Simulated scan of single mutants.
Amino acid sequence: MDTRDLKVFVAVYETKSITRAAKDQFLSPQGCSKIIQKIEAELGTSLFARNHFGVKPTPQGDALYRRAQMVIRLLEGVKDEVEAARALKYTLTIASTQGVSEYLSLAFVRDFAESHPHISPRIMESPDAIAKQRTLDNVAEIGVLGGPVDLSVFHAVPFTSHRPCLVVNEANPLARKAAIDYADLDCQPLAMVSREFASHHLVVNRLANAGAHVDIVMEATELDLCHRLAEQGDAIAVSFDFAAWGGRRAHTVIRPFADRSFVWETFIVRKAGADLSPQAQEFCDFALAWVADHRADLFQWPGA
């Protein structure tokens, strides 16, 4: 006996007719009768008395009717709850250094949504210090941070590797060079991301260690503002491959550093000692695989 059988029984009980109940349940009268006979055989009792007017419930039929209604409501309620739970999405909060969304683009979001419809990623972009603190405070379950990463407080997995580059106005003499040496930037007006970002210190330290005098005329929270200054010829923008090529501006050229060992790495991190939810693990696995599959499109230097 299952829910379907009980619904047929209830229909017969309420209509007092095998024929009408069969029609309501989209069955033949013979099929409806067989289900009633099956229930009676399982219970070992007669549920209806047959007469030429239809059927009349027995006391046992009355008792089953009261229980059947309760069971049907209970099982349908369970089914509704299961369906509702299936429809609910797990909100996965991710703290990220700014710029990551430029390459975790609409294509990434679309592909992830298609393969993981039960997970809704919420990416909060901010300067590195804020993204780190959000991850440590469990505001975000995972983070995407620029290196280096403090492994005493984070568990980290390498995610992406980017080449710093320069966006130069085409009238600037440096635009004629195929690659830029650190010494070329000595006392040059530079525009770069603000010191709130780890990538800022990566660039400044590399230039200073090479002996170049670093003259920063603008710090910005968005690289596009730096690119705009380069377009106007007011500064050389220190940028990164994905941002420079993705938002290329008129009257500018993009030049790599001659030092090919100069890279900026990002990491997927979680608080040390913290366990990932299954949903967070699914996101990490997908993100790592997706970036690996699309690396040539996202990060390859044109012509390289």
Rank of each mutant, 00 (worst) to 15 (best):
S120Q: 10
A21Q: 07
I123D: 01
S17V: 14
P127D: 00
I130R: 07
V12K: 13
D215V: 10
A107V: 11
S46F: 02
R255C: 03
R163A: 02
G61T: 00
T97H: 01
I94T: 01
T19Q: 14
D111A: 15
R4K: 14
L288S: 07
H294D: 09
A87Q: 10
D234Q: 10
T91Q: 11
D241A: 04
T45F: 05
D275N: 15
H155Q: 08
Y65N: 08
S105P: 01
R228P: 00
F48K: 08
A63D: 14
A304S: 13
E170H: 07
L47Q: 08
E141W: 05
H200W: 11
N138C: 12
V144Y: 05
K38C: 01
E114F: 13
E42C: 02
W245Y: 15
V217Q: 10
T266P: 00
A292Y: 06
V203E: 05
V139L: 12
A179I: 04
L185Y: 01
F299L: 06
E81K: 15
A292T: 12
T221I: 07
K7T: 13
H213F: 11
V8R: 10
S96Q: 02
R249P: 09
D275K: 15
N51T: 11
F9H: 13
F262Y: 09
T93E: 10
V253W: 05
N51E: 09
A258W: 06
R295Q: 10
K79I: 07
E83R: 14
I35L: 03
R134Y: 07
T252F: 03
G233N: 04
E196R: 03
S17R: 12
A41C: 09
Q98M: 07
I142H: 00
I236H: 08
I72C: 14
F283T: 00
A156T: 04
D2R: 13
G233S: 01
R176I: 07
S194T: 06
H118E: 15
R195M: 08
E14L: 13
F112Y: 12
A131R: 01
R20K: 14
V144I: 15
P158R: 08
F9K: 13
A140H: 04
A198E: 01
R176F: 09
D184A: 07
A230C: 11
A87I: 02
G77Q: 13
G44L: 10
A296N: 10
R270F: 01
A235C: 02
V10W: 12
V55C: 08
L174E: 08
F112N: 02
F112M: 08
S194F: 11
K7I: 12
D181K: 15
F299Q: 00
I268L: 12
I142W: 02
A87Y: 03
F257V: 00
H155D: 14
L276R: 03
V291F: 11
S96Y: 06
Q232S: 09
L145R: 02
E141A: 04
W301F: 02
F257C: 01
N172Q: 12
G54A: 10
C284F: 03
D184W: 07
